[in-house]
Amino acid sequence: FEARLTQASLIKKILEAIKDLVTDANFDCSPEGLSLQAMDSSHVSLVSMVLHAQGFEMFRCQRAVSLGINLASLTKILKCAGNDDSITLRADEKGDKAEFVFESQSQDRLSEFELKLMDIDSEHLGIPDTKYSAIVEMPSSEYRRICSDLGVMGDTVRISVSKESVKFQVDGDIGKGSVCLHPSSVVDKPTEVVKISLEEPVDMIFSIRYLNYFAKAAPLSDTVTLSLSKDFPLQIEFKFGEQMGYLRYYLAPKID
């Protein structure tokens, strides 16, 4: 397996967005691309990442291989890569180590690292194709701000989506608060748009702590999509451009 990405910053941002939820994960390499699925230890949330092969500058994978990686170790290695460096990832069939090569844009600096891989027994979950009742698209910076603002007030947030608005409400020890967003009427910048597609109104409660973990993915995409259905896990998606891939989180709801 060998793959080369022009910008190491993408991998660095992906890692930042998942390393607080997951400690070890299998990076699954196949001819289609690189993917990862992992749950947090309490099985409340799940991360699903896909990088399509066509998003790479070069991608070669003769047969599927899983690279079991400790994310703290990978973070240490990626700290040695500049944001604008290209990154080449290599692994052989034995699958006991992975090789990382970082090259500066001017090609005058080359650094190489080898990471020991581990055997990870991970449970793969089948996520059914779902027709969600409510889909909200909003700026990821707005999502991050709401989660961090409301997170200081309480542990859970009630998300209510209607045709007219999406409302985030918190009820905590010191008091309560809410933020309500209406779909944008005037659109200056596509990245500032709030869009709501609704089959039926949804009103659900989630842990703010997890929503805040997911907000770490905000640097990956200008917009975020929240998909909700009653008594079903919330899906939060950050897309890396059109053809590149995505990072999705799933969060189990609080239920009666």
Binding site: S42, L46, E123, L125, G126, I205, A252, K254
Partner: peptide, 14 residues
């Protein structure tokens, strides 16, 4: 009082 569910009750293990 609402309690936290887990994903295992919604998604099947492959």
């Amino acid at each position: 009082m609402k309690s936290q569910s887990t994903l295992l009750s919604f998604f099947e293990t492959k």
